[in-house]
Amino acid sequence: MTRLLSSLSRRERPRPALTYPEVGATRSPAALPEGYHHLRHTAVVGHGRAAFEAAGAAVTTWRMHRASGARVLADTDRAEPGTAVEVSAGVGPLRIGVPCSVIWTAYEKDRTGFAYGTVTGHPECGEESFVVALDHDGTVRFTVTAFSRPGVWYTRLAGPLVPLLQRAYAHHLGRTLRRLVRT
C-alpha cells in the first residue's frame, strides 16, 4: 500500500523535462548519437551467478553510487523508469547535485541495469547507463555507456576536463562495484 501511494504521488508531481532528444539511445550502445562526447567503459567485477546478482543489486539499488562516495537521492529504492534521481558529490557548499530521470531498466536473466537521462537543472545534456552482464563463461562485466555534451556555460568553459572527469568516475565505479561484489 505504501509503495502504491508513493508511486501515485510520484506520478502526480510535475517532472523536470529531459534535456536531449535521443532518449533511450544507451540501450543500443553501438549506435550512440552524433554530436556528443561518447563514453564506454567496461570492467570485470566478478565471476559466477552470485557475483552477477550481487553486482546487479548494487547497481540498481544505488548502493554502488553511494559506496563510490556520491550522495544519491531517489524517489524509489530501486531503479525503475520515471524515477527521479539526484546524484551529488563534494562537501558542504561545494556539493554539486545533478538531477536525472531513469529512462530504462533491464532486469533480465543475464543482464541487469538502468540508464538515466539529464533533466532541467543538470549541467550536461545526455544519458548514461550502468549495466551488469553475465557472460557465457561466468565472467561478470560492468559497463558504463554515456553520451553527453555541455548544457550550461561552465561545462562549456571546462572543455575537455568534463569528459576526463566522467571517464575517471566510470573507472571509479567499476573499482567500487568490484569491491562490493567481493565483500
Score class of each variant (00 low, 15 high):
E124V: 10
P81K: 11
V85Q: 02
S148R: 05
G138H: 02
A58M: 05
V131T: 13
A58L: 01
L173W: 01
L157T: 15
A146D: 01
H65S: 14
F114I: 02
H171L: 11
T155S: 04
T118Y: 10
V152P: 05
E127H: 10
T105S: 09
E86V: 12
R175E: 12
A70F: 15
G97I: 09
M64K: 09
H171M: 08
D110K: 05
G97H: 02
R175P: 00
A170P: 04
Y107L: 13
R141S: 14
A115F: 07
H136A: 15
R141L: 08
P93G: 03
V72C: 03
R95Y: 07
T76D: 09
F114K: 03
D75P: 05
A170K: 01
G117Y: 04
P93C: 04
T155M: 04
A55D: 00
A58F: 04
Y169Q: 07
E127W: 08
L94G: 04
L164C: 08
T139R: 15
P123C: 03
R175F: 11
I96C: 02
A55N: 02
A115E: 00
P93A: 04
P150S: 12
D77V: 03
R182S: 14
E124A: 08
G174Q: 03
R179G: 03
T139N: 10
V85C: 11
P150M: 09
W104A: 14
A54I: 09
Y169C: 04
P99R: 08
T176V: 02
R182E: 13
V152G: 01
F130W: 09
T61N: 08
P150R: 11
E124D: 15
E128P: 04
A57M: 07
K109Y: 00
R149A: 12
T120V: 10
Y107T: 15
G90M: 02
A89I: 09
R178T: 13
L73S: 09
M64G: 07
V131H: 06
G69N: 04
R66K: 10
S68G: 04
P123A: 02
R78L: 06
F147E: 09
V87F: 15
V102C: 08
L180E: 09
G151T: 06
A58C: 11
V98R: 06
V152F: 01
A170I: 11
A146V: 04
L177R: 00
L94M: 11
A115M: 03
Q166K: 05
R66G: 02
G69V: 08
A168M: 10
E108K: 06
P99C: 14
T112M: 11
L157S: 08
W62M: 15
W104L: 13
F130P: 08
D135R: 14
R95T: 15
Y116P: 01
T176S: 13
G56A: 06
G174V: 00
T145R: 02
V162Y: 00
Q166M: 06
S148P: 06
G117E: 02
T76I: 00
A70Q: 07
P81C: 11
S68Q: 11
R167A: 13
W62S: 12
A58Y: 01
R175H: 14
P99T: 13
E124Y: 03
M64F: 12
E128Y: 08
E128Q: 12
V119C: 05
T83D: 04
L164W: 09
A106V: 10
V131N: 07
D135F: 03
V131W: 05
